[in-house]
């Protein structure tokens, strides 16, 4: 199954673009990338969800892991571009305010 993300590292900053469906089948690959991102202790991470069509609770868990991990190492994180079903899920879980969506 295609990995639904692209990662671009520029200095101490990372740009992560997630696309397609982030779900129980695809989230594990992203979670591995998230481990690498957090280990690098980036000063800033931008997570672009504008290409993300569908998410389930496993996908949400992966993004929560990214958010907590980056913040715990003192980095800043921006989650941008959430729309349609993923935005509805974040709102339902009341994460839209925490993520500042």
């Amino acid at each position: 199954m295609a990995t639904p993300y692209d990662i671009e590292n520029i200095g101490t900053e990372s740009n992560l673009k997630v696309r397609g469906s982030l779900d129980i089948n695809t989230a594990p690959a992203l979670a591995e990338e998230i481990d690498r991102i957090i280990a690098a202790k980036p000063t800033k991470v931008v997570c672009d969800l504008s290409g993300l069509d569908l998410i389930d609770s496993s996908g949400v868990a992966a993004l929560v892991k990214l958010y907590k991990g980056v913040r715990s190492t003192g980095g800043a994180i921006q989650i941008i571009g959430a729309r349609d079903q993923p935005l509805a899920i974040f709102k339902l879980l009341r994460m839209d305010k925490v993520f500042n969506l």
Binding site: D56, S57, V64, L92, L93, R94, M95, V98
Partner: peptide, 24 residues
């Protein structure tokens, strides 16, 4: 249940699936 007050420290990393289904 999900935490009543959700902030950075209480963001759940699991147990959300049934809540999503029931709410939707």
């Amino acid at each position: 249940p999900l935490p009543t007050e959700l902030d950075e420290s209480t963001l759940p990393e699991g147990g959300m699936g049934i809540h999503i289904a029931k709410t939707m």
